[in-house]
Nucleic acid binder design. Sequence first.
DNA 1: TCTGCCTTAAGTGAATACACTTTATCAGTT
DNA 2: AACTGATAAAGTGTATTCACTTAAGGCAGA
Lengths: 237, 237
Amino acid sequence: MTDQLDRTSPESTSGPRAGNRALSVMDRVREAVLEGSISAGERLNEVQLSKTLSVSRTPVRAALQALAGEGLLDYAPNRGFTVREFPLPAIVDAYDIRASLEGVAVRFAAERGLGAQEREIIERSLAAGDKLLERGSFEAGDLTIYRDINGDFHDALLAAARNRMLSEMIRICHHVPVSSSRNIVVFEYHDVRRRHDDHHRIYEAIVAREPWRAEMLMREHVASIKTSLVGYLSERR
Amino acid sequence: MTDQLDRTSPESTSGPRAGNRALSVMDRVREAVLEGSISAGERLNEVQLSKTLSVSRTPVRAALQALAGEGLLDYAPNRGFTVREFPLPAIVDAYDIRASLEGVAVRFAAERGLGAQEREIIERSLAAGDKLLERGSFEAGDLTIYRDINGDFHDALLAAARNRMLSEMIRICHHVPVSSSRNIVVFEYHDVRRRHDDHHRIYEAIVAREPWRAEMLMREHVASIKTSLVGYLSERR
DNA sequence: TCTGCCTTAAGTGAATACACTTTATCAGTT
DNA sequence: AACTGATAAAGTGTATTCACTTAAGGCAGA
């Protein structure tokens, strides 16, 4: 990891997180880790990072500590921070954990009901998905578009669960390298079609106030994503 | 919060976490927060803490950041750290989340099988519980003893799940103030009896390699603890 | 040549100093 | 009396420095 971070991004006119370099550093290191430009197990040298990012070690350390809290880095006393390893089994497990947690989230949502705003976001994402899928096949870029639609749907459900701890845990599951939803370049049209149908049913269960059915549907939904991923990974060997 | 932390604990002869004051500070602050001597919403003043604990602000900040990562504190830029609020509904929710996660944990354990060591710990904790309960009633201190037995059982299962992310999340659930297993001063003999029977059945399901039955039993197990707590809390008003 | 120790460089841990932001206080005004 | 503004105090953010630990390299002895 020589200089993956050194594009001295202007950030001049109050970039993101202006006024707090630690948070800015945090974002950039996280980005680098998630997109794999630092590689697992690698040690993060504080002085090198601080030189690369042109800040002192203090905000660097703060950022690394925070990222360790997110579970992205490991820390050992007197030995500093390393990029946490995510062996394949752990990545697969993350889907089971996520399935369980998102199941609880939609159960909560069904118990508590949707706010007008959440309802609108969800219906819009469902409609957008319908529109995108009605052609019967995918063109270039469609998958990227659906990725955002999918993200909106899940985020809205998370908000509807109205529980912070749950949101944070699910967020951690999504941030497991490779498990990230941004890496769903692996699905065919009919996969997406099926998943979008899942979304419709989950939404119906929520508005019908059927918490346990909603939970079950969501667990199955995420479990099927896991299955697809496992299949994809095993045939790539 | 004047001086809850100031008993200048000797710690001289290589106390816990010697050689790393940040970790030591972290333990002490966490302790103070969990036992409620700091109270929710309160702001943690860095200079005051550093004076109280006789260290500089640097390790104090490190500790606070790490505790924020554990979800115990909140952070706002230029405003520092505050003790996170856990309203009653969030505490109750934590049990649902925990039930779900521990369910996944025992499912994993049943899928993967128990190591000899884990098996031994579990069987010992089951036997110890049997012995403690065979008298048919509780005496003073028995509940405290059972608390440890209970802790061993759950910890061994966690280890058997062999998944770090899962362990950490469950640990967070256990560290929710009031939700902590140390505050189970609320149960009668027959409650404990019932829960201990749950433990036996869960263990049987695991050794029989019945993952989904094990998960279901564990979910129900934790859910019933939640129910007891809710009942206890609502009758105290 | 290999082993073990010693030296030294590299890197993290902690303390201190200073800059900047926020918050509280107090005039002065309406 | 309430509000606005300036000002001072308090508190956090960052940089720098030194102390300590760990890891690496070389040298001596077997």
